[in-house]
Amino acid sequence: MIATARLVAGKDLRIEWRSRVLLWQVVPFGVMALVLSGLALGPTRAGHSSAGPGLFYLVVLLVTLLAINRSQAIERTPGTRASVATLGLDPGGVFLGKALALAIELWVIGAVLLAGTVLFLHTALAGSLAAVPSLVLTLAALAAAGTLYGALTGEGAAPTTLLPVLALPGFAPLLIAGERSFSAALAGGSPWEWWVITLVALIAYLAVGVLLYGVLEES
């Protein structure tokens, strides 16, 4: 399973490196969303800072949905699905590999967006840096959950529009925990309880994904 996960993650990351879809399409979209959020809030810095974590995670949600769709689109061509199916890859390994690649991509995007939050929403630099561990954990959980929901919508008539409807209820606790952690970090408080919630969700999604990914692919 681990060997399959490494193989699939390497393949997905190599494809992203070659195509630069996330770099040239998703990252600019996220940065533009942050800029527009800053403009919408007006020039008062204090208001920006308090709204920053919520707006940041709203943008994270949008770019995560785009990244999940991109990750699933790689496998969605009918011919590719059949060819790869005949490789008989371990489905748990495929899930872990796709989730890992997606997490790495989201970490890179998240770093850019966090810098954008400091620039355009004027969140405190020290507090924003203190939020990095919770951001890493939240994005990993979103990647695991997103890979699972992506497989669930993969064979639907309109997977790109179905994904947000299905995924949002599952993402909501993760986004709320991430936002609270970020707010706590900005306020100098302790975000431990939110980290625990996110970590439990991450483990649960990984376990469910390893067990069910093959069933979802078959169905």
């Binding site: 061509t77 011919g79 590719t80 005949t86 490789l87």
Partner: peptide, 18 residues
């Protein structure tokens, strides 16, 4: 079974960016 068969289909069967 799938590990023991080779499939050549109508469509493109590869990762285009590789």
């Amino acid at each position: 079974l799938r590990r023991r068969v080779g499939w050549l289909g109508h469509e493109g069967s590869f990762y285009d960016d590789l």
